[in-house]
């Protein structure tokens, strides 16, 4: 167990170090996400005080596309010069490779959200003051499930020629569940002042648990080849 945690820490640190050195992914992704928010802002000509529901819808579009780019880029690091083969030749658990990649992806996604959410809040004059904590919790839970699926499929598609578009195609339909559940929870939170909880939250948590376990198991089998 200790060994596994050490390996995960080692692998995650390596990913974040590579990212910190180039800052290619996070820069690219943040600008893309801001662009998406601006496009939607111009297209929707926002009314002041847009509801929490609009906020999440717009943020989701930004997070989804940003996420796909993050998953793809962090996996490309392993494919370049076949570094992944080096990992597979090391006596480490394949689950550790998955866990580390997932953590690195989540760190990048949270960083992205940290920049993009305030931008959207300012541009759209969102009022998140009713329950900023609830908003953060719901979004974080959603991102965990999304990143689990994304990490798994990124590992699969990175060896094909058409990685990017294919990854988005594979990940988006499965993610519709999270978007539906999280937007409903936030709708109730901001429109009806209901506290975060109930079946919406339960679905988000169930999604996270099911797909964390499934992705971890499948990742191991798939990399075994």
């Amino acid at each position: 167990m200790n060994r596994a945690i050490r390996h995960i820490a080692l692998l995650t640190a390596k990913d974040l170090r590579i990212e910190a050195r180039g800052r290619q992914t996070i820069g690219l992704v943040t600008v893309l996400a801001i662009l998406i928010v601006v496009v939607l802002a111009l297209g929707l000509a926002p009314a002041p005080g847009a509801s929490g529901l609009t906020a999440t819808a717009i943020l989701w579009v930004a997070y989804l596309f940003g996420g796909v780019l993050i998953f793809e880029k962090t996996m490309a690091v392993e494919r370049y010069d076949e570094a992944l083969a080096g990992l597979l030749l090391a006596p480490i658990d394949r689950g550790a490779i998955f866990a580390a990649k997932l953590i690195a992806n989540l760190v990048l996604m949270f960083t992205l959200a940290l920049v993009v959410t305030p931008v959207a809040v300012v541009l759209f004059q969102f009022d998140l003051s009713a329950s900023p904590g609830g908003f953060v919790v719901v979004m974080m839970l959603s991102m965990i499930g999304y990143a689990a699926i994304g990490t798994l499929f990124a590992a699969l598609t990175s060896s094909t020629r058409l990685a990017g578009g294919l990854l988005a195609m594979l990940v988006f339909p499965v993610t519709l569940t999270i978007i539906l559940a999280s937007t409903r929870v936030l709708y109730n939170l901001f429109e009806h002042q209901q506290p975060v909880g109930g079946s919406g939250l339960a679905i988000l948590i169930a999604f996270d648990v099911i797909f964390l376990v499934a992705s971890w198991l499948v990742f191991e089998l798939v990399l075994e080849a």
């Binding site: 519709l176 569940t177 539906l180 559940a181 409903r184 079946s199 919406g200 679905i203 169930a206 999604f207 099911i210």
Partner: peptide, 10 residues
């Protein structure tokens, strides 16, 4: 099943 449950929220 998750899709089914989440559409129940509508």
């Amino acid at each position: 099943p998750l899709v089914y449950l989440s559409t129940k929220l509508l």
